[in-house]
Simulated assay, not measured.
Amino acid sequence: MTERVDLAEKFAGFSDHWRPRIAAQLNGQDVRIVKVQGVFPWHSHAEGQEMFLVWKGRFYVEFRDRIVHLDPGQFIVVPSGVEHRTGAEEEAEVIIFEPSEVVNTGDAPVSDYTAPGGVMA
């Protein structure tokens, strides 16, 4: 990919929540964009770290012992194997960096939150 990516344009292209789209791929990683609202199920990823970067709104990552709140321009890296869930009281737009093979619901059972893989933005 050698073209400029306009994140605002990419986010404007969809309205559903918890359905990541791939904005770019590099070195075995996806740059995924997602709109979120509400609370995502508890899960972990045995073999892949996730980085959540907030683009718009307020977002949080909840761990069993604490909650980390993030504002636009802030990010957090969730280590492999660490149980967590994410959420936002109002709609937020988030950029996720993770290995391409990672399923968004990790080790949680397949549910309405399990997004189809490979969907491009």
Rank of each mutant, 00 (worst) to 15 (best):
T2D: 10
E3F: 04
R4S: 11
D6Q: 06
K10H: 02
F11L: 13
G13Y: 07
F14S: 11
S15I: 00
D16W: 01
W18D: 14
W18C: 10
A24S: 12
Q25F: 00
L26I: 04
Q29N: 00
D30K: 02
K35T: 04
V36N: 13
G38I: 05
F40L: 08
F40P: 05
F40Q: 11
P41F: 03
W42V: 08
S44H: 10
E47M: 07
E47N: 12
E47F: 07
G48P: 03
M51E: 14
L53I: 12
L53Y: 12
W55N: 15
G57R: 04
G57F: 06
Y60N: 12
Y60F: 12
R66S: 15
I67W: 03
I67R: 15
I67E: 13
V68I: 14
V68D: 13
F75A: 14
V77N: 02
V78M: 05
V78I: 11
H84Y: 09
R85E: 14
E89S: 10
E91K: 05
E93F: 01
I96M: 07
F97A: 05
E98I: 00
T105C: 11
D107E: 14
D107M: 08
P109I: 05
V110I: 13
Y113M: 11
T114D: 11
A115K: 01
P116N: 08
A121T: 09
